[in-house]
Design a protein around this nucleic acid. Structure first.
Length: 284
DNA sequence: AAGCTGAACAACCGCAGGGCA
DNA sequence: ATGCCCTGCGGTTGTTCAGCT
């Protein structure tokens, strides 16, 4: 028994959308709202696949789409989020109002990823200016190895998580970060980090204590140390498969913390896979 | 001016997860 | 508990356009 195709592919319009189709889709969604994508084409009178309608709406027709160039700030944020989240474009897009995952993905593949690669191969330059001239020729991208973008990020699975254990080995990172954000010596008083009640060396991060300022500073912090930890402490390589197979590592714990915090505040509630050894205190 | 090349981005495809019967 | 349906996601492909030769 095979999977039911999402639509009958024969006889459906494909390729670029026409202005008429856009108008029909927009009018229909304004009237009936989003959802029921499979039935939408027939209901709206569109000769399109439901998936295609959804994509067109989400990536192009939505009224809150921000069009135009990605700003420098947005680019910096994308880079940092990508260091944390990997190719989780929808989550990254969630932190960039008006930007779609497709847009960010395209932007990454055509712009940032090359910069990151260039930065790795040549540490002399710190932050290259953005490509202003479109169509500027560069070295061929064909046959280039797939960009191993950013740090090795472990994929996660969605579940509710508001608290996270931070290993003793990562405390220096925590302390240095908090020193800068909330001030020296105030770590345990002000930050969302708190010692475990069982007097172990572990710390717990309570996401309920995280405010927007902290998140903002966290996002703009330099995550390079996390990458170093990962490179030293984990099997790197295929980032898509090193999740469940790798042995639990306390270094992983801290690596995950940013991801979980981000996602939690976005109400996407993302936590690591249960068998990664990450100490995540899940809510029910 | 024409052809070529690469950048940009829109769109497609297959898969996975959650919800529901 | 199981299977199906719907939706969303990420990777990939296709198309258009601008700059270069």
């Amino acid at each position: 028994m095979g999977r039911r195709p999402c639509c009958a592919k024969e006889g459906l319009n494909r390729g670029a959308w026409t202005a008429i189709e856009d108008e029909i889709l927009t009018d229909y969604i304004k009237l009936h709202g989003e959802g029921k994508w499979r039935n939408l084409p027939s209901s709206a009178g569109l000769n399109r696949c439901g998936k295609s309608c959804r994509l067109r709406w989400l990536n192009y027709l939505r009224p809150d789409i921000k069009r135009g160039n990605i700003t420098r700030d947005e680019e910096d944020l994308i880079v940092r989020l990508h260091n944390l989240l990997g190719n989780r474009w929808s989550l990254i897009a969630g932190r960039l109002p008006g930007r779609t995952d497709n847009e960010i993905k395209n932007y990454w593949n055509t712009n940032i990823c090359k910069k990151v690669q260039g930065h790795r191969s040549s540490t002399a330059t710190n932050h290259k200016p953005r490509n202003q001239a479109r169509g500027k020729k560069s070295s061929s991208r064909i046959d280039e190895p797939k960009p191993n973008t950013g740090s090795s990020v472990v994929r996660t699975k969605a579940s509710r998580c508001t608290k996270l254990l931070i290993s003793p080995e990562a405390q220096n990172l925590r302390d240095s970060f908090c020193d800068r954000v909330v001030g020296p010596g105030l770590v345990d008083d002000v930050s969302p980090f708190a010692p475990m009640e069982d007097n172990s060396l572990d710390f717990v991060m309570d996401f309920n204590q995280v405010d927007e300022k902290f998140l903002s500073d966290f996002l703009h912090d330099d995550f390079a140390p996390l990458c170093d930890i990962d490179q030293n402490g984990l099997e790197t390589g295929d980032t898509s498969t090193n999740t469940s197979s790798s042995s639990p590592s306390s270094d992983q714990t801290f690596l995950f913390s940013g991801e979980i915090m981000l996602c939690d505040l976005d109400l996407h509630s993302v936590a690591p896979l249960p068998d990664t050894g990450i100490d995540c205190l899940e809510d029910q």
